[in-house]
Design a binder for these strands. Sequence first.
DNA 1: TATTGTTATACTCTATAACTATA
DNA 2: TATAGTTATAGAGTATAACAATA
Lengths: 142, 142
Amino acid sequence: MRETLDRVLQLAVLLNEDMARDLERRGLPGSRAHLVWEIHKRGPSTQQALAQALRLTPRAITGLVDALVESGFVTREPHPTDRRATLVTFTKRGGMAARSLERDHIEFARKLFDDLTETTFHNFTRGLDEVLARLRDLLVSN
Amino acid sequence: MRETLDRVLQLAVLLNEDMARDLERRGLPGSRAHLVWEIHKRGPSTQQALAQALRLTPRAITGLVDALVESGFVTREPHPTDRRATLVTFTKRGGMAARSLERDHIEFARKLFDDLTETTFHNFTRGLDEVLARLRDLLVSN
DNA sequence: TATTGTTATACTCTATAACTATA
DNA sequence: TATAGTTATAGAGTATAACAATA
């Protein structure tokens, strides 16, 4: 079991490094990509909403949004009904970047799993589901 | 396939968060634990060797070792034949911490996989191996 | 000359606390 | 009063570059 856990951890490390390198090439180092991904999933969002979704402080979001504004991925638009709030919104460039992330994410999944037989893939997915459920249990009762 | 990749990524995130929280409780926040783990695997090591193993700059290792010396996990011992180098070496406390990490790592693997039937576990491990091999291929030819 | 580790400096990401404008 | 976001400040982790001691 220890060997299997070690392999899961190594898979996590390698995926992480690979994605980080890829994102850096796109001009979206580190956490900025998470923010782009979140806006892609949610649409234009207040900074509060983003802070909660990413479990960061509002201050951290301010810094990330500043960086993404500067690099031209998003703009701060006025909230239509609450003048305290801003809606972080994709520019054309930001929207294109997000859609490109999504496409390449799917393409990457295909490359990663395409070699597996249908049975192996199915069994892997099944085991993964059980492990994930078990981990969630462990975290709740931690 | 996209759903399976998403689950792998979520497993990575959850494992990461869980381990980070656990390590912080032991007084080994963030990267210091990686360094302790590496010294545990390698035995007393020069900072150069640690820099290469963790793929960090020598300067980063200096900072991590400083922190571990200050918190009493390691000492810098003179290298027996090379007076430029130091051997980063566990104190009693550091050695105990490393062995405790190892024990809990194994215990965690048991908790995570114990519910799976033998067949499910075997199939999961097998799929994991293939995915890991495939990912290594992709990284080489990136 | 090359290598080991350090000092000096800077950047990113994160946090807490105090503040402004609005609700 | 409470909420959205900012300014001010601090700490961890990382990097590059220049340097001292040693090989």
